[in-house]
Design a protein around this nucleic acid. Structure first.
Lengths: 212, 212, 212, 212
DNA sequence: AATGAATGAGTATTCATTCAT
DNA sequence: GATGAATGAATACTCATTCAT
């Protein structure tokens, strides 16, 4: 498989850099930064270890780039959300659903984010890209809140970043800490049904929580 | 320092096992499971590496026990919460405040939990202790919700576990992912003021969110 | 089992020293000197590790004593052979059969002897006991050969030690190197049938080989 | 010395793999599998420890390959014996002399074989190479025996493998267990004279033993 | 751009042995 | 005699990184 992937890559003109990044994302997501092996990333990519160093310089740099790419991607998706075109309450629901579905589909993003934070953020701190990829989200949420206030459906004085953090917390935590919670509370949270029930719960809680 | 710690331990009758566990908690919290070094744990404890193996058998087992102890401790504190003695809304506020202050004081718990989950829960899965340390919290929250319903201050049909997860999510995420969020949104979330503002936000959101 | 063995030992008055020696023989035979573990010997004996040191001082000394005991035992059995009471040719057959059956029953003796020799005999060299436990065998074989010569059934000039070595070689090697030989030649040498055929071969070869 | 050996190796085009194998053979022969140290093998080779793992994967695998190479070499020499070109009795003498001189010159082969068998053959069992390196010897001995029968100089019905084992036993045992035998019987068996006398003994015993 | 070979510094774990009681 | 606790010195094995081509 590795071999054919390489060949395919050569044919399609896909460059080695991108192939390595994909392999790195998978490896880092699975094992964390410290658990990941450069050898393993090379093997996953079907290329050799030295190319990893040729393109990325070090394991730390590779991790940083992988993280940046993950953030870049989610920022792109957030732009598509277009919350402003929706009635305020629908906008909040869409935001919650987007967050849940994106995280459900991108476990590797959860893993990398949790890992990076658990380690104290050493790669984020070294990166300019994070500051530059200013999220449009806070502004969009701010506009939604103002519109909701104007329409009388939301309370006044809600801080958009705090709201974002609370929504992100409720969604991220569900996936990120599902393993220990399932173990402790004896309820399987990984089923679509459990997720659907939880989604309705946080939608209701948030919408009601924003009412004047 | 190491020597005097050992001597002090001997004087106070504290046993080696406990000393090692404390050192392990600090090391694992700081570096994560893979980043932690058994050598470093031994050095922190002021004892030698072989004793770690004498008492715990392996790095994995030591991690598991450390995690179990951390859970045991939080369960003890949760029992003291005594939510039933409070009016329903006050009980929810106390729950949120407890969660925030416990996590603020026990960053090592956050780190270990995030790390364990990021790695897929390998130690939790091997442990019977987790299943046995049934949390009294969900039941307490259930009673609070029922009382709130009876008094007409809470909506019907709220699932206590879902509520717990959403509160835990909002609080845990704030601390756990603070590093990347501060970096991306350019607001320092680690100040007491920022925390206080956020606390008021989630208290308001949750209380309003529970109203009928 | 370990516990009951200890208790049994105490009841029967069997002393700890002997129990440890039995455990050591089994462990050394199974794993060789370097592969054997003092911990494992203690566990097998049902006693604790420190007693091993109390009685034997070191792993090397324990090995030496175990080897000496093994030799002492085979010397005792050799004395019972009483070759002198048999006609010369019968005596040789009895010698071969004794060697085969003793080795078949005492694989641990084979293992320890092979191991000690493979390591260059470090324990034998430190032991006075080996020199003192002068084997009666060579003298018995010498008498048998002289009697055979006198009766005209054996050639002259056969050295009893050389004969002993050749017989010991043919018998010892069969058991000692059976594993590699079975693997290489694809014939299972561990069956009673294979042993019986081989026994007849070396009896015939030796008796014919001694004829004038 | 180590350095110059490496350089010399590079100059002569000898590759690292072969250098390591030579070092391994010496170390394993001297200390046995469990007594041998990977560090020591690396030091002997003048290369570093990690290369040992790069080329061989593990200590066990290195041992297996070393053992296979030792067998491969003796098989090559056995092919040169060309017993069929000799009169039957001379062929047997040549077989005995080959066995004695090969073992005398290759003590490391004796040590490794004894060690492997004493440990129960763990490496032989994992190896396909042993089964594949079918020895030509048994067939050659078989042909010699048939020719001897035809000429009336050998008895009928002698099994070639049994004969091989008895000869191998007499020769191997002399070298393999010489240390303990010298210690017990008080005769130095390591002198050329002692060997020469023993050689004549087993030649005479075997030839006479094969007569009709 | 690409790769087989090589290495410094570590990393969890083991083990014979001793201490203190 | 007997034992739980403690330790110095290894020991097999790993891993990010670099060299040479």
């Amino acid at each position: 498989m590795a071999k054919s992937q390489t060949r395919a890559a050569h044919k399609t003109g896909k460059n080695a850099r991108e192939i390595i990044l994909n392999a790195a994302r998978a490896e880092f997501a699975e094992k964390g930064f410290n658990g990941a092996r450069v050898d393993s990333i090379a093997a996953r990519s079907g290329l050799n270890k030295q190319l990893v160093y040729y393109y990325f310089g070090s394991k730390d740099d590779l991790y940083r780039v992988t993280l940046e790419e993950a953030y870049t991607e989610i920022r792109l998706r957030e732009k598509d959300l277009d919350l402003r075109s929706l009635p305020p309450q629908d906008a909040i629901v869409r935001l919650i659903d987007f967050s849940l579905s994106y995280l459900a589909r991108h476990r590797e993003f959860i893993r990398m984010l949790a890992d990076e934070n658990a380690l104290g953020g050493p790669h984020v701190k070294d990166s300019d890209a994070f500051q530059r990829t200013n999220s449009p989200l806070i502004e969009m949420i701010g506009a939604t809140l103002r519109e909701g206030e104007a329409q009388g459906v939301f309370r006044k004085g809600i801080d958009p970043l705090d709201l974002y953090i609370s929504i992100a917390g409720m969604t991220f935590f569900y996936f990120a800490n599902g393993v220990t919670m399932s173990a402790i509370f004896g309820r399987d949270l990984s089923t679509p049904e459990a997720l659907s029930v939880y989604r309705d719960h946080i939608v209701a809680l948030t919408l009601a929580g924003l009412r004047p």
